[in-house]
């Protein structure tokens, strides 16, 4: 079969792609372009047509006057943003939280998927999957409220346990050094189960034969996980990581806002909460467009940078 296939495929591609004229190439793939068309219309209409909104960052946009009648202010909003005395504190807090997120949260769904994949009792496996994905549907308001109940120093369950063993209580909610662990802990609790969905789909493409072959080779459980399961996830992991980096500077505004208080604000203020408060007193449009543009530029650099790196090490990357 292998031989036949090669002969046939030579016939199908009578000319090497790069020798065809543009028109021939378009014509050959005309069906594919028809498939693309609705998507292209969508992106043109709902993504690119509104793109003028990003230019608000260079204007003093007033909704009532409209875009054209509002004054151009050039880089003023960017100057205000970068010269803000709090800029470096905001940048530091945002970056540290983003790094925590990548280091501690990003691998969590992968590990959980690997563990779930090792369960062989179908009903048990499916039940576990269902339970772990429930927190995704809880609102941050409820999660903040439950966190308070568990973590407060006035009779919180976790602090009761901590003080039973150490004799001391920990101010999880008020001390700056606990702010980031609490935030990341909440994210891990809420989103890990949800994050496994996509990896479990990727694992569906691993054929049983691959495991069988590994067993024939005498591979134990961990080696099978390492040599069969994990490689099957690799390209998905890399794609998700690159995409995540595109939103590197975005943080869950509502979560952080709810967990911030007077005693931990110095580490809790991030770009997203800052923009929200600026919006309250200043009218969000132009200023938040400027901050958004800044975050987007950072994001696009990270996307292309990691994509380049991924290709360097022989991975597929985004395109």
């Amino acid at each position: 079969m292998a031989n036949l296939k090669t002969e046939q495929s030579v016939k199908v591609h009578t000319l090497p792609i790069n020798k065809m004229t543009l028109w021939e190439r378009l014509k050959k793939d005309r069906f594919l372009y028809v498939l693309l068309l609705p998507g292209i219309i969508y992106f043109a209409l709902f993504k690119y047509l509104p793109m003028w909104g990003t230019l608000m960052a260079f204007k003093d946009y007033s909704p009532f006057l409209g875009f054209w009648a509002s004054d151009w202010v050039g880089l003023e909003h960017f100057k205000n943003f970068f010269s803000n005395p709090d800029f470096f504190r905001l940048l530091r807090n945002t970056l540290i939280l983003a790094l925590y997120d990548i280091v501690f949260f990003f691998p969590a769904p992968i590990i959980l998927s690997l563990l779930i994949n090792e369960i062989r009792i179908t009903i048990y496996k499916r039940s576990i999957q269902t339970f772990v994905y429930v927190p995704h549907f809880m609102s941050w308001v409820i999660i903040a409220s439950i966190s308070y109940v568990f973590l407060t120093t006035s009779g919180g369950v976790i602090n009761e346990v901590v003080s039973f063993f150490t004799g001391k209580e920990i101010s999880f909610l008020s001390s700056p050094e606990w702010f980031r662990p609490v935030i990341i802990g909440q994210v891990i609790w809420k989103e890990t189960g949800w994050g496994t969905v996509i990896f479990l789909a990727a694992l569906a493409s691993v054929s049983p034969e691959q495991y069988e072959a590994a067993i024939v080779d005498g591979a134990g459980r961990f080696r099978r996980m390492w040599h069969v399961t994990l490689p099957a996830l690799k390209s998905t992991i890399i794609i998700l990581l690159i995409l995540r980096l595109g939103n590197f500077l975005d943080q869950g505004f509502q979560q952080i806002y709810l967990m911030t208080n007077s005693l931990n604000r110095e580490v809790a203020d991030v770009f997203d909460t800052y923009v929200y408060f600026m919006g309250i007193t200043q009218g969000a449009f132009s200023y938040s467009a400027a901050v958004g543009l800044f975050k987007a530029v950072v994001g696009i650099i990270l996307i292309y940078g990691t994509n380049y790196f991924a290709k360097k090490i022989g991975e597929e990357g985004l395109f």
Partner: peptide
């Protein structure tokens, strides 16, 4: 479009 978007009012 994943990182740049026009925002609420243009849409």
């Amino acid at each position: 479009t994943m990182v740049f978007n026009g925002g609420m009012i243009p849409t």
